[in-house]
Design a protein around this nucleic acid. Structure first.
Lengths: 221, 221
DNA sequence: TCGTTCATGTAACGCGTTACATGATTGC
DNA sequence: GCAATCATGTAACGCGTTACATGAACGA
């Protein structure tokens, strides 16, 4: 139990849950669409896929011409990975876990990216956990800053100030998200066949945005 | 020549240049004062110190009672590390290097933390290099966003938007810093005895609205 | 046909952590 | 005298990268 998930494993399961894919495409999704926040190389991804297959969470399927088992002929076929029932169950379990790990920078970003498939109470717990994690951080920074204030040069100080402001900014962002969740907007979108929810409802994303400008993706934290 | 510095090595040399220290204290400085942006464990630090000694950049000195070589008796003494002349020279060389590595998240933060001992032209190059690195990043984010806009759910989109805003804020921060450097304020302070600079001057430290990463950032692409 | 992108993998290595093991010093 | 913190280290492992190796599909 609680198998020490790992961001890659988590993200792979999450992406494959949406639709089967082969490794190459998976990596692109990981690094662009989803993971502006994280880059993985093939040397990491492929071995990972293998172990997930070995554990029964993924199944490999050849994408060769129909009727061609592909493994039989000399041709090397694309391998399409699909989430098994076990894999789905496992991912669901991972989604529901809210241990302290989930509040770390990159882990949090990965969790957030799959909020569309996460229940509201778990979302709340993750957001609040993240927030208190950051608040602890701020505490420590403030303490350390007042302890050492006079001994640091201006550049070091500026660096610390800047870092602290970043954290504060993320806290404000979380506050808004938490408030949105609390108010009631449940915007688990994406799952195909879920599109019927009327879209004119007052209160889409906290960012009235989505439309603000045709350019705004980014890196978390 | 260009020995693949490594953040830890760099920071250790930089801190020891200010004053000799033993490992334990060094680690604290690394993780609090200096490194809100990075935490190192002893398992990393001590072996590193050894290799730096082996290369002749650091010298070990026992802090035992005077007259007591400490290594001779059974007592285990504190080991105080001091930068050698070679080490100083080496650090100076590292400081002056402005290769592409220096613009990566954590590497950049480490460089910035030692700006107090860096010449103005190098500071400029590092700041500008960092900025263009971030601008490339923004380019990619925008491209990827407009390519995939319709296929992402709101949470993923929000994550990207937030990340991008963070990068944009850091760019603004850098703009202000660069402008300050250009205008001429040379604020390599710190070393005691520099406190007299009047503080009302129009244009002290830029108080930019900023953002960046205090630690464990998303290191994309 | 030739270069680019798609596609899959492996081996060696880098950098760092955790957990463990040990002992000295300080303050109550 | 006992706990907390200071202080130093090692071994095993985790997680990821780079560089290498291979080959198919596609478009100009």
């Amino acid at each position: 139990m609680s198998r020490r998930a790992g961001i890659l494993e988590f993200a792979v399961l999450g992406l494959l849950r949406e639709s089967p894919m082969h490794g190459y495409e998976l990596r692109k999704r990981l690094n662009t669409s989803l993971g502006v926040f994280r880059a993985f190389s093939y040397g990491t991804l492929y071995p990972c896929l293998k172990t997930l297959v070995a554990r029964g969470w993924l199944a490999e399927e050849s994408a060769a011409a129909p009727g061609e088992p592909a493994t039989l002929s000399g041709r090397r076929a694309k391998i399409v990975y699909r989430l098994t029932a076990d894999g789905k169950e496992h991912f669901e379990e991972l989604l529901s876990q809210t241990g302290p790990d989930a509040y770390e920078d990159e882990h949090f970003a990965a969790r957030f990216a799959f909020f569309g498939q996460t229940s509201r109470d778990v979302r709340m717990r993750v957001l609040e956990g993240r927030r208190s994690r950051l608040e602890e951080r701020l505490e420590k920074m403030r303490a350390s800053l007042s302890r050492t204030r006079e001994r640091l040069d201006d550049y070091t100080l500026e660096l610390q100030r800047h870092g602290m402001e970043s954290v504060e900014r993320e806290v404000r962002w979380l506050n808004e998200l938490i408030e949105s969740e609390r108010v009631g907007r449940d915007l688990r979108t994406s799952r195909p066949g879920d599109a019927e929810r009327q879209k004119g409802a007052p209160g889409d994303l906290p960012r009235p945005g989505s439309d603000s400008r045709p350019d705004s993706p980014g890196t978390p934290t």
